[in-house]
Amino acid sequence: MSRPPFDPVIERDVRIVSAQLGRPARNVVGIAARCVCGAPTVVATAPRLDDGTPFPTFYYLSHPVATAAMSFLEAAQLMVECSELLESDPAVAEAYGRAHRDYLADRESIAVVSELAGISAGGMPTRVKCLHALAAHALAAGPGANPMGDIALERSSWSPAVCRCPDYGVDAAGGSTA
């Protein structure tokens, strides 16, 4: 199995992700998607955290504006609409099942965690539960990889093509600018 194509993590990325999350970043194994300015948007997280906890969310949306946009769509009931589409369109259901299998393969290319067997993220493959996780997967894997993530990104007020990053207080070398 090949490793998913993502950027290696550098200290600057860890500092930015920590600022984005408002807490120390944990077990980041790669940067799976970036803003046009270069700041991390999606991190790949180890399937087992350093403390031993299984962590199923391999692709984690870290960008605060993207996260807020997904929260808005969840509050606007986009998950209900997507769930109805999943139930009514066999082609979408098939693509969503493929997204689930691809997600599992990506995560298992880093580590196989028995407690996570068959569990991906966002409700895949049978329901739509978390637009944050689905959008993160779509951003990491590219258009067409996750139909529900694609829908969320299309409906979002946020775009990865337009930088709306706050000042993270991190210089190019990864040090603090404060």
Results as ranks from 00 to 15, higher is better:
151 I>L: 14
114 S>Q: 12
125 P>R: 08
107 R>P: 00
136 A>P: 01
119 I>P: 00
147 P>Q: 08
74 E>V: 09
78 L>W: 10
95 A>Q: 11
104 L>I: 13
119 I>W: 10
81 E>R: 15
133 A>C: 02
134 L>F: 07
139 L>M: 05
141 A>I: 03
132 H>I: 07
119 I>Y: 15
124 M>F: 11
120 S>A: 15
150 D>K: 01
149 G>D: 05
110 I>N: 03
136 A>K: 06
109 S>V: 01
141 A>W: 05
68 A>Q: 14
135 A>E: 03
141 A>F: 03
147 P>W: 09
124 M>L: 15
156 S>V: 13
151 I>W: 11
138 A>Y: 07
67 T>Q: 09
109 S>H: 10
159 S>N: 04
114 S>C: 06
106 D>R: 03
127 R>I: 07
84 E>I: 10
153 L>K: 05
115 E>Q: 11
97 G>A: 07
160 P>N: 06
125 P>S: 15
126 T>Y: 13
85 L>Q: 10
107 R>Y: 00
101 R>M: 11
138 A>L: 07
118 G>Q: 04
81 E>H: 14
134 L>E: 05
71 S>R: 15
131 L>V: 09
78 L>S: 09
98 R>C: 03
121 A>W: 03
117 A>P: 00
149 G>Y: 09
87 E>I: 03
92 V>I: 15
85 L>H: 06
155 R>P: 01
155 R>Q: 12
110 I>E: 06
142 G>Q: 02
133 A>M: 06
67 T>K: 10
106 D>V: 10
110 I>C: 03
157 S>D: 09
103 Y>E: 07
141 A>P: 02
116 L>M: 13
77 Q>G: 01
156 S>G: 13
86 L>P: 02
81 E>C: 01
96 Y>P: 06
97 G>K: 03
133 A>K: 08
79 M>L: 12
154 E>Q: 15
156 S>C: 11
73 L>M: 08
131 L>S: 08
92 V>T: 14
111 A>I: 04
139 L>T: 02
103 Y>L: 11
104 L>W: 02
110 I>G: 02
128 V>Q: 13
105 A>P: 00
125 P>W: 12
133 A>H: 02
137 H>M: 08
95 A>P: 00
151 I>H: 13
146 N>H: 15
68 A>W: 05
104 L>A: 01
116 L>T: 09
100 H>K: 04
155 R>W: 06
70 M>I: 10
155 R>N: 11
99 A>Q: 12
69 A>H: 06
133 A>N: 04
131 L>M: 06
137 H>A: 05
119 I>G: 04
118 G>C: 08
148 M>C: 09
93 A>R: 08
117 A>T: 15
72 F>N: 01
76 A>K: 10
98 R>Q: 14
115 E>C: 02
91 A>H: 08
143 P>C: 01
100 H>C: 07
117 A>K: 13
159 S>P: 07
75 A>M: 12
148 M>E: 08
108 E>G: 00
74 E>L: 08
80 V>K: 12
75 A>S: 15
153 L>A: 04
